[in-house]
Design a protein around this nucleic acid. Structure first.
Lengths: 125, 125
DNA sequence: TATGTTATTAGCTAAATAGCTAAGTAATAT
DNA sequence: ATATTACTTAGCTATTTAGCTAATAACATA
């Protein structure tokens, strides 16, 4: 279960447009790292990308992108793994799953409470 | 469907601890506004609270709380309604429902894509 | 060993944010 | 009419953030 501090970190990580887009593309596999060219045998999830590959898609410097990725990592919505020279980035599906569950629980509890209080089963305008 | 701008506003609204706690308490009905004492006939959702009632629970000034509530309103995760002197605040369940669905879709799509790519049906460590 | 590649860290600046107090508005109560 | 209540707006300051360049680190390769 995500505690408040963890949730705050996630919201902070996602409140910036650049980080949001990095997250989006890491998550949807928008641009896969061209690892195969020189290292065809490397065992990396083919969905993974790496820092410089992400940076190619933004008009920001590599250090800026690197810092953003660090923040996404600290919010635990991505994972990073160093292999040789490169840092491979993958979405952290577990955290997103937990977040989805948190919001769903909020909605479900709200509906149940309303039913308890008003005695109806559907929200009516 | 929430667009990116809308999502960014929501994450921005929730990335601050004070706003997060206001949201939490408005949402869970933590402190209901004592509207009944003087205006027992007023037709307001009994879950609703008002600005000064929220402010009582924080060591911040009323203007600070008022500004936070404004930001939560602009992110559309609460609604506000002026009745007489007071401003009644309620959670905006529709937005939260949509957000829950967004995250759930992300998780589902991720799982489906993995299945398509790797040909398995469960994620394995 | 020297050179190139990939990424991080340090240190800087401009802009945004979160808090405050004081002043203003609008409705209610006296 | 005046005072009070509930809230917002304006204007201020300290802190944080997001970007940059330059320097450094870690690894790969010629």
């Amino acid at each position: 279960m995500l505690d408040m501090e963890q949730k705050l970190k996630i919201f902070k990580a996602l409140n910036n447009q650049t980080r949001f887009l990095i997250f989006k593309n890491v998550f949807t596999g928008g641009y896969t790292c061209s690892l195969d060219k020189k290292q065809p045998g490397v065992e990396v999830n083919p969905i993974a990308t790496c820092v410089s590959t992400v940076a190619e898609h933004f008009n920001f410097s590599l250090p800026t992108i690197s810092n953003h990725i660090k923040e996404l990592k600290e919010a635990k919505i991505i994972t990073v793994e160093k292999k040789g020279n490169k840092v491979y980035i993958e979405p952290n599906i577990d955290t997103i799953r937990e977040l989805a569950e948190c919001f769903q629980t909020l909605v479900t509890n709200f509906d149940n409470n309303r039913e308890l209080f008003f005695g109806d089963t559907l929200s009516v305008k």
